[in-house]
């Protein structure tokens, strides 16, 4: 190999190539860059916030509530001006009414707290970072809420205390608490189905069928909620209705369809077969109420997905 390099003789030599650098750590005074923030964007649709209708409703409530309070004060002052006795009687009546309202609100608040307890337990059972003791405490609180509705509460409590992981806790709750509640809810659904079918049968007009089923459904919802230790007032009932609308889709279709199929095959709900044969629509009402019981039970359960 000759040492000649192609090019012009008066050309300056090319710059020396940088030597190949060996792998390794680099001595440098350059500050380290900040590590990129790993916070994947949320793919959930953006929250809609308070819409126009919300503002209108809030304004109306404020207007009506404020007007009512101002009217009460004005009325009491008027009565007081007429006669102190009349004024004090008015004040007493108003105070009693406010106390009754307060008591009702307190009961609603307690009912909400119970519902939040169920939500808290749901979270504790699914959050992998939740300490076992926190989840266990939530489970025991929920058990206390159920009280005498569960058989052998003391054994269940001890079993929960003996669990060594959240997975065990979840399974034990399923095994000893949620399954019996599920069974009770099923029975309530069957009862409601029979009664709903009977009510439809004796309803004077087919136009009332929907109303009958709706009222019985509302009673069933409160009944199943009570089975799960909740004491639903008006607001909690409305909240539960919203949940049921969401969870009804999640109730295992196979379970419901199988129950319906079996009921069709045997007319297994005692009495429904005869009523259904005589009155069109009664069988459908019965099955809808049964399905509602399953959906409400899921909405009230700390597992939420027990039908899987």
């Amino acid at each position: 190999m000759s040492g000649f390099r192609p090019g012009f003789s008066d050309e300056p030599p090319p710059p020396q190539r940088e030597p190949v650098l060996e792998p390794g750590f680099v001595e440098t005074t350059t500050p380290a860059p900040a590590a990129p923030d790993w916070s994947p964007a949320s793919t959930a649709p953006p929250a809609t916030g308070v819409g126009a209708l919300g503002w209108i409703a809030g304004g109306l409530c404020l207007l009506l509530g404020g007007s009512l309070v101002m009217s009460m004060i004005g009325f009491a002052m008027d009565q007081m001006a007429r006669s102190p006795t009349l004024g004090f009687v008015t004040l007493g009546v108003q105070a009693a009414a406010v106390l009754a309202l307060g008591a009702g609100a307190g009961m609603e608040l307690r009912a909400w707290r119970r519902l939040r307890l169920v939500d808290g337990l749901r979270l504790a059972l699914t959050d992998p970072a939740m300490p076992l003791e926190t989840a266990r405490a939530a489970a025991i609180d929920w058990l206390d809420l159920l009280g005498a509705r569960l058989p052998e509460v003391a054994i269940t409590r001890q079993a929960l205390l003996d669990c060594t992981s959240i997975a065990e806790l979840r399974a034990m709750l399923d095994h000893r608490a949620i399954a019996p509640l599920q069974e009770q809810s099923r029975r309530a659904g069957e009862r409601a189905g029979l009664q709903g079918a009977a009510l439809v049968a004796i309803a004077p007009s087919p136009a009332l069928d929907g109303l009958v089923a709706g009222v019985r459904g509302l009673v069933l919802l409160r009944e199943v909620a009570a089975i799960h230790g909740l004491r639903p007032g008006l607001s909690v009932t409305i909240g539960l209705l919203r949940r049921v609308a969401h969870t009804a889709l999640g109730v295992a279709a196979v379970d419901v369809a199988a129950a319906s199929a079996a009921d069709y095959a045997l007319g297994a709900m005692p009495g429904v077969k005869h009523i259904a044969a005589a009155v069109p629509g009664a069988g459908l009402t019965a099955r809808r109420l049964y399905r509602l019981a399953l959906a409400v039970a899921e909405a009230c359960s700390p597992r939420g997905d027990f039908t899987r």
Binding site: D255, A258, A259, A261, A265
Partner: peptide, 16 residues
Amino acid sequence: RDWALASATRGLSVVD
């Protein structure tokens, strides 16, 4: 009834 329910559940599970 329980037998019919279980059978129907099994059958529908297979289809599902």
